[in-house]
Design a protein around this nucleic acid. Structure first.
Lengths: 292, 292
DNA sequence: GCGAAAATGGAACATACGGTTCATTTTATT
DNA sequence: AATAAAATGAACCGTATGTTCCATTTTCGC
């Protein structure tokens, strides 16, 4: 009788991620139309959450009854209970920061103003991250990491507002066993340090408008010495973008005149760990450089 | 007849923020029950998006028909069209990073792995920010800023992973005209610098597990010398939490063993700008210290 | 305090919804 | 190729939904 393990006995996914995993797990053994619905559901979760069985079925190119069968195949007792999972997913998303900020801004300027300031910075960070995740180009990233992978020493160049990023990169590279050199003004030795760099090295230069003159000047010198420059900056008009081999455009949101560093930090960590990953074990062979 | 400007002529809000503004604008002139619904709608937008007219009416303590009247008062032709706006709001929220990351992780380990790493850090940053915005205590924040406001010099204490945050605080305080002193190891002068601090100053100490011994030790000394310590750390068991006047618990998500700094950075900026705001013009009088 | 107008509660209604059923087609097995 | 089993399409049904209607209450102007 119970030839198959009764699916009911397994705990039914109540949250979307578990459901997603379940669907992907069973994808192979699913009938054609059911699989069609499964694919549609994962691609258009919002539609499932809000649509009616009829409208969804229409969009997915199946009969409404197939939706019910799909739900039942997974162990739910009907389309409605499956839909709950898709709705819960939207419910559980934390309120977006832009929205939260708008709300906060509308309130009176009372004792909670400190909280408003922090919320502002959280919102700026969140927005910066959003933008980066949409705009970051995979190929640029691959090329940058490829360059860094080939470098004997990675020089890190940043001042003022960008300096925290540089110091974090230096710290992380150190922990990951990648040779690096942080160029800072305090020691007064930057000219000497820079003169050691050659074409087998690489530079990560970070600067945003108004560009620190020392960063720009030193990057220019390094570039003239054939040291490949990877720039993290804010626009195509940045002086850094002009002589960089690879450059990233990072749009950081600001609050109260102070720009976030969140996206830059994440990118910096990505570059750092990306290089380390490449060097650990699969050196070179996984080069993403499409031209070879 | 058309004694009132016919509401239909105004463009009906299609997005939530506009609707929100419209409701707040008309709040005054709304009948009691309608106003009750309006308040409920702004407080529980998710309920409006997902619930049925009956369930919402029940939760809001009104009759279902009142919901339709509410919608019609605003110019919509029924509850359903109003509900669309609340649903659109959920639809338009950007996909959460946790979800995006899970998706990315499920894919094959092909050439996009660099992107996956950056996405990982973006996700970690985003999550950290979410958590902070939920957990940050307003009163703790107010007390910390109050303490900093009273300080002659603000000392900043952090090493290793936390050092970038410290350097950013120092940079920002400098730009805002607040006297501060960054304590770092490079100069070898930390003991001397620390000995200058007294009870009229304050310290921001930042350290996460595994706590840098220098940070802990120096914070201990400063605390013993009656310099108020504001700590940013990761748990109540942190050595910093023990002798801090005020301390923040910041839970940073990590990716690949590297923890994010996003939430700590935002908090740091909040403290920094919070102090500057307080000092600019409304010095002292706006103290949020509830006890006075 | 009276009368008109607006607001409210609650029942009644038409409909659109999810679910079921069954005939037909497709797939798998022998 | 024949048969059984599974999958699919499409019509059908009961129900729960949004909406409307009307009696009652409340509010406001005079």
């Amino acid at each position: 009788m119970d030839d198959m393990a009764d699916t009911v006995s397994e705990a039914l996914p109540r949250d979307f991620e578990a459901l997603r995993a379940l669907i992907l797990d069973r994808r192979e053994g699913l009938p054609k139309r059911i699989a069609q619905v499964a694919a549609y559901a994962l691609d258009n979760p919002d539609e499932i959450a809000f649509g009616t069985a009829a409208s969804i079925a229409n969009s997915a190119g199946v009969q409404p009854s197939t939706l019910i069968r799909f739900a039942q195949h997974l162990g739910y007792d009907g389309f409605t209970s499956l839909q709950q999972v898709f709705r819960e997913r939207l419910r559980e998303r934390t309120t977006s920061y832009e929205e939260r900020l708008t709300v906060v801004r509308g309130e009176a300027d009372d004792g909670t103003s400190n909280r408003r300031i922090v919320d502002g910075f959280l919102a700026a960070a969140s927005k910066s991250i959003d933008v980066m995740s949409r705009n970051l180009d995979d190929e640029t990233l691959d090329r940058a990491i490829d360059l860094l992978n080939g470098a004997e020493t990675i020089y890190i160049l940043a001042r003022r507002r960008s300096y925290p990023v540089a110091s974090y990169i230096a710290y992380a590279l150190g922990k990951l066993g990648v040779r690096s050199q942080l160029i800072e003004s305090a020691s007064g030795l930057s000219p000497e340090i820079i003169s050691f760099a050659n074409s087998r090295d690489a530079v990560i230069a970070i600067s945003f408008s108004p560009y620190a003159s020392a960063t720009v000047e030193e990057a220019r010198i390094l570039s003239a010495n054939n040291v490949p420059v990877i720039a993290i900056t804010d626009s195509a008009f940045s002086p850094l973008a002009q002589f960089a081999k690879v450059w990233f455009e990072v749009a950081e949101a600001d609050f109260g005149g102070f720009r976030s560093l969140a996206a830059t930090m994440a990118l910096a960590m990505g570059l750092t760990v990306g290089v380390a990953e490449l060097r650990r074990g699969r050196k070179g062979k996984k080069s993403a450089n499409s031209k070879g």
